[in-house]
Design a protein around this nucleic acid. Structure first.
Lengths: 221, 221, 221, 221
DNA sequence: TATGAATGAGTGTTCATTCAT
DNA sequence: CATGAATGAACACTCATTCAT
């Protein structure tokens, strides 16, 4: 009764509140992860909790909406990638750009890490994205750019694989995940070239200090 | 089996309960992640909450104990890998075996994904493992088996990258993560060979149904 | 009535609940001491626990609020006593009136007995009361009404000394503590008069039965 | 079945354990108050908790036993006081000596502050002490040393009145309670003399710092 | 319609007491 | 008999969600 899907456009102020809530959620989720309370989100958005519950049935809903929005952006990127004439570049730029989108958003990471999150509407977007990815992959294969046993569904898993890396190195080596993406791409490209790595490996000293820092800040909470 | 060595040996029944608690924790963490309550763990182990708190100072302690035990096993695998004469096999078998260990344990995933979890004892084990990995990687490089820009710290990140894949496909395609490990290994091997993939790609239909199933079982909880 | 002044005024229903909680706390603290649970207080006030925690950050806060309110009343009594022209009457009426206030409130006793309870705000009130007492005592000394070696800080200790007496005789001889206050006042007055005791001594029979009754009602809890 | 009263003497080792437990309880109660756990007491006594429960039905029992023992010592003091030929000295030395006994024992204070603690056996001792106090008071009255309206039951209340004073000043001014005892004694002596006070008043500065210190150490816990 | 007050089940944790070893 | 492991009710406190204003 409350949450209008795409149907029946929301009243303008309601729409504004919805937008504000999503923005607040994005910021807080990005900064502190999915555990922030709905109270915090609502206040960060400048509205009361009640309003949040008028726009979203529950906390999951707001997460879903955010994920949906993000996926819609992913969909857009996929469409743009299809405009790229070079099939290899099309595929890899899709990967690079969507991964960059995930980066810097703690909440989005959690979501991409945990496939149990997300609802039907999310799937709808996924369903729309799937054929675009199929197209990207098929073109690359047809062009002989990638190995033959590579499949479209592999793309998503590659994306999700970067999540833990981003998550644990965001502060100390923001580009590190691209290093591992490169390993993978070098593993699937047909020309067997060895790419220059876009980021140096993390030194064990940094690894250690980064982890210690995290632990500190955590126990402070 | 883990802490009992150093401390004065627990009474037999206490030892049994300790074991039961760890086993219950492992199962529940594996099944539902680290958020399960200590109450659930205790009851799953067939003991009262108080008993859990007699054996472990707090929830973190039980996680640490589990992680320590697991990491000690990882350490053992690393040592065994060093006995393998073929440097490439040594490195890859270490990866394959430890990943297989992670598999099936949701909690272990979370722990390996989140370096803020775990205490000093955990770090001690990490510190012991690090040089073993360095050795594995150096040998492989010296033998010309892997690319020169590969670094020992890459090993851990590769491991963590498999986590979300395992996590989302455990039920429908348990071996799938090996497919992506292979992509990576093909990306770092010097001979530029293209390996046979150990698992077929997931069909998009399966992808969809798997996720839906997960969501169901979750909302049932 | 207490904190609401400074902060933005609470919504009317919130204010009512706040009042109810304080009243419930006062009653239960009075009846059973400071160990009552916040759950009990909330339910006694006819609200849920959550409400109690919305109004007060923690159990200590509610105690502080109560104590502050009480101490403000004590402050008022001290100011009124200073209006009394007869210095002896001023001092003794302050003592009698404040002790009467303490009477019947087990929690207030505990608080006045234990200086470790109470926060900054409490101390602020204490700081405001201190000079008033100094004035009361100095006047009485100047007028030659009390012995010269009496000091302002003695007043508070005399008050606290009555606590255990009140506490143990509240039900059987509510005025008994005034008997001991009189002994003390007779010990500090300069004219060396012997006052008529305001309450007869407790017979040993009553002493015994009173204590037994208390023990009964306690073990029932 | 377990706890032998005065009847059937305990086996020697049992007796020793009982003694040890009481001593441990006395020390811990004195040092930390009545809230210490029975576990701590047992371990401090060098025995297991189970043993403590074999000797005492529950925690209350051990408190009672302690109080009983203490009261027996009080009884002894009363008998000794009766040997004092000067009736005023007899009464006052009884008060001074028993108060000194209370002093330094946090647990004993709590017990004397809270008349709901203590059981039947305690009363038995009280019953034995009562006539001794009656005798002390009657002698003093007959000798014309104290006011006529003073009653034997007043003695106990005077004792209990000192408890909160001792408790709050133990660390900063151990003798302070004697100051207030003197006020009272000056209030009941017939000769209307004004005694030299055995302790100076607490300065308000000390009062404040003492309280602050207490609060500090408390919040540290 | 927007607000934020109210709710209470649920969380980690403690401790008096019981009972198997 | 002594031990200490086991128990679970109880506590202070949090937060997703509902509902009166």
């Amino acid at each position: 009764m409350a949450q209008a899907d795409a149907a029946r456009p929301l009243r303008k102020d309601a729409q504004i509140n919805r937008e504000r809530l999503l923005e607040a959620a994005r910021e807080l989720f990005a900064a502190k992860g999915l555990d922030v309370t709905l109270n915090d989100i609502a206040h960060h958005a400048g509205v009361g909790v009640g309003t949040a519950y008028r726009r979203f049935a529950n906390k999951g809903e707001i997460i879903d909406a955010l994920f949906e929005e993000r996926l819609q952006a992913v969909e857009a990127v996929a469409r743009e990638a299809l405009d790229e004439p070079d099939p290899w570049l099309a595929l890899t730029s899709y990967l690079r750009r969507t991964l960059r989108m995930q980066f810097g958003d703690r909440g989005l990471h959690q979501i991409m890490d945990d496939p149990t999150l997300g609802d039907e509407r999310i799937n709808d977007v996924r369903v729309r994205i799937a054929p675009l990815i199929v197209e990207l992959v098929e073109r690359a294969k047809t062009a002989g750019a990638i190995r033959d046993d590579f499949a479209p569904t592999d793309v998503t898993f590659i994306q999700s694989a970067m999540a833990p890396i981003m998550d644990s190195t965001r502060d100390v080596a923001p580009d590190l995940y691209e290093r591992y993406l490169t390993f993978i791409l070098d593993g699937i490209r047909s020309d067997r070239q060895v790419s220059l790595l876009p980021a140096p490996a993390l030194s064990s000293a940094i690894t250690h200090s980064a982890m210690t820092r995290k632990r500190r800040s955590r126990s402070a909470t």
